[in-house]
Amino acid sequence: MTQTLDQKRAALAWQYATAGMAQHGKEYKGLAKGAPALIMNSGLMPTLAFYSGKDKSKAAQHLLDDLICGLSQRLAGQALKTGQGALLFPKFMEALQKSESSEYLRYTDEALELLKWIRQFVDAVEAKAA
């Protein structure tokens, strides 16, 4: 049985939202809820750089990892383990910098689609845990 693209995104997002909420709770939820607006206003690369900042919280680092892992899996076919995405941040940013504009837009669109699911699931995870 073949899964739809939305089912694949939803499965990733459920995994990310569950782990993010379990480890960071409301802070992860707030970041996940605000991430799409940040991407729309600032762009994908500035948003990733913001989450990667050395003074950023563990929740921001976790969301950064989730986004890089999710984008790598969905668009590059690389199944990264938790924690590997944040470690690959410099290489990921270099690849985005060198990409064609159509490829950069594809990554941006995919990030927004993945975040759409994560935003919904952080509420469900919180409601279930309460």
Rank of each mutant, 00 (worst) to 15 (best):
P36Y: 06
Q120G: 14
M21S: 05
Q73W: 08
R119A: 09
A49T: 11
M45Q: 15
E94Y: 06
S57R: 08
Q23M: 11
A17I: 03
R74T: 13
M1D: 04
F92D: 05
L48H: 07
Q15C: 06
R9Q: 04
L75F: 03
L64S: 08
T4C: 04
A59Y: 02
K91D: 09
A86N: 05
E126S: 14
L88E: 04
T4H: 03
A111Q: 05
R9D: 04
T4F: 01
C69K: 15
G20N: 07
G20R: 06
R106I: 01
A37N: 12
G25P: 11
G85H: 06
H24Y: 11
A32Y: 03
K26P: 00
Y16T: 00
A19N: 07
L67Q: 12
A22K: 13
A127K: 13
K91I: 02
E94Q: 15
A22N: 12
I118K: 10
A49R: 15
Q23G: 11
D123S: 12
E94K: 15
L88F: 05
K29T: 00
A19C: 02
S42P: 00
L96C: 15
Q73H: 13
Q7F: 02
L31E: 07
A124N: 09
G20L: 08
H24N: 10
A59G: 08
A129M: 10
A19T: 07
Q78T: 03
R106S: 11
K81H: 07
A19Q: 12
D109W: 02
A35P: 03
L31Y: 08
Q120N: 10
D55H: 10
A22M: 10
E126L: 11
I118T: 07
E27H: 10
R9W: 01
E103H: 03
G34C: 01
L67T: 05
G85W: 04
F121T: 00
K81W: 00
W14V: 02
S102M: 08
A19E: 10
Q7P: 04
K81R: 12
E126D: 14
G30E: 09
Q23R: 15
A124R: 12
G34R: 13
T82D: 12
V125P: 07
R119D: 05
S99W: 00
